[in-house]
Amino acid sequence: MMRLPRFRYFAPRALDEAARILAGEGPEAALVAGGTDLFPNMKRRQQTPTRVIGLRGVSGIRGVRAAERGLAIGAMTSLTDLERSAEVRAAWPALSRAASLISTPPLRNMGTLGGNLCLDTRCNYWDQNYEWRKGIDFCLKKDGQVCWVAPGSPRCWAVASSDTAPVLCAIGAEITLVSKNGTRVQKVEQLFHDDGIAYLTKRPDEILTEIRLPDPTGWRASYWKLRRRGSFDFPVLGVAAAARLDESGVVKEARIFLTGVGSRPHAADAAAEKLVGHPIDDARAIAEAVDAAARLAKPLDNTDFMLGWRKEMARHYLAGALSELARAQL
């Protein structure tokens, strides 16, 4: 059996206490929410924090509540609760759907929305246990010198794999980050950085406490996920699209995000632009948007499926997600 390394565990009850411990323990510390990402990674020695701060006992950061103009979701809300929340389903069914497509029922019971946003990037040279990685002399992401996916490259290309992140980006959600020194609010989109190693812009001493969903009036959104097994695989490609329509069905504003094809959810702004000013079911506009967005999908050979096919599939999934916007009834 694979064993966890030794670590010291903290179980704060309040947010300020958690923030204080986190700041005090420094870079040796990690937060844990549901642990469905962190603990397997620790068993594989991808992460080896000597201090682990559990958020499960912290009050006030769990559950869905109505906020001014939208919904506020505590970072510790489980994916199951997120998926089943009537408010979320009513406001942003695409988010509920994205949550329902994550992993398996037991993992969704444990896994949280906050953890899902902070999920480590993935790569099949990386998501291996310690001995295996030793067999390839490790890689740039940790303990090694070379990125085996792109050996000439100075950076890590591990893949953003969260299913909720692209949807939250597309609908323009915001997050609250709390540290010992204060609180800041930013767009979900700004949380991510295009680098497989430093994939979050969040400072290590910050705790993600809340996700704020905007008022859905006039908006519709969709999410399409490609993976081999519908029962529990990570996304190899995720396409999230959101559009605001006027009464006549003409697109006023649109956002498209792709995940699984880079180290962060990629904004396909040029593609989204093609939809604006056209009826949502305008086939030509959709085709142009697909062309523009597909250019962004430059998958590397570090996930499941053959490379060329994945690139080809981006077109089909974009077309699927955009056409679904036209069909979606709010």
Partner: peptide, 9 residues
């Protein structure tokens, strides 16, 4: 997880 084999579902 990555050696793909179908699950019950």
């Amino acid at each position: 997880l990555e050696y793909k084999s179908p699950g019950t579902l």
